[in-house]
Amino acid sequence: MTDRTEPHPAATIRLWDEREVPRLGLGCWAIGGPFFAGETPLGYGTVDDAESIAAIRCAVDLGLRVFDTADVYGAGHSEEVLGQALEGGDDVVIATKLGNRFDPATKQMAGSIADGDLRRETRSAVEASLRRLRRERIDLVQLHLNDLPIGPAGEVFDELDRLRAAGAVGAYGWSTDFPERAAAYAGRSGFVAVQHGMNLFFDAPSLLAVVEEHGLVSINRSPLAMGLLTGKFAAGQALPAGDVRSNTFGWMDYFKDGRVVPEFAGRLDRIRHLLTVDGRTPAQGAIAWLWAKSPRTLPIPGFRSPAQVRENAGALEKGPLPTDIMAEIERLLDRQPEGEARAR
Score class of each variant (00 low, 15 high):
187 G>M: 06
173 G>D: 08
196 H>P: 01
57 R>H: 02
164 R>V: 14
86 L>T: 06
134 R>W: 10
74 G>A: 01
44 Y>R: 01
29 W>F: 13
109 M>T: 15
319 G>Q: 11
298 L>N: 01
90 D>Q: 14
94 I>T: 04
259 R>E: 11
92 V>W: 15
119 R>I: 01
203 D>C: 05
18 E>Q: 15
335 R>F: 10
55 A>P: 11
177 D>H: 11
70 A>L: 02
191 F>C: 07
125 A>V: 03
2 T>D: 12
131 R>S: 08
191 F>S: 06
215 G>I: 08
29 W>R: 10
187 G>Y: 11
76 G>T: 07
258 G>C: 00
126 V>W: 12
242 G>W: 02
11 A>W: 07
333 L>S: 04
47 V>H: 14
141 V>N: 11
124 S>Q: 13
167 G>F: 15
85 A>R: 09
62 L>E: 12
241 A>F: 04
89 G>M: 08
57 R>M: 00
66 V>T: 01
158 D>H: 07
101 R>K: 07
320 P>S: 14
102 F>W: 15
279 G>N: 00
329 I>T: 10
52 S>H: 08
140 L>M: 07
316 L>T: 12
213 E>W: 04
264 F>M: 12
214 H>R: 10
279 G>W: 03
241 A>K: 08
222 S>K: 06
99 G>M: 06
302 G>H: 01
134 R>M: 04
271 I>E: 05
165 A>M: 02
251 W>N: 08
108 Q>I: 08
5 T>W: 11
271 I>R: 08
54 A>Q: 15
69 T>D: 03
248 T>I: 04
248 T>V: 04
309 V>L: 01
31 I>C: 03
138 I>V: 10
19 R>H: 14
148 L>N: 05
37 A>K: 11
88 G>R: 08
